[in-house]
Amino acid sequence: MCLSVPAKIESVNGSKARVSIGGNKYQADISLLENAENGDYILLHAGFGIQKISEQHAKETLQLIDEINRKT
């Protein structure tokens, strides 16, 4: 039940959004998020967006892992 999954926002209507997870569509409440927009990925938990996912940080993490591996 603690499961939180990345979901992509497809449309926003006030505090509600339609989101897609692997092609399946869900309704999400996005009132906990600041400036959530179409195309953003959010963590969806119990019907609520709880955090926006940062693409920049996602890439930086991957890069860091890649560097760790190259050194060993």
Partner: peptide
Amino acid sequence: KRAVTVDGNSIA
């Protein structure tokens, strides 16, 4: 880091 900051979600 893609989902967590030092201060978290202040609205929540």
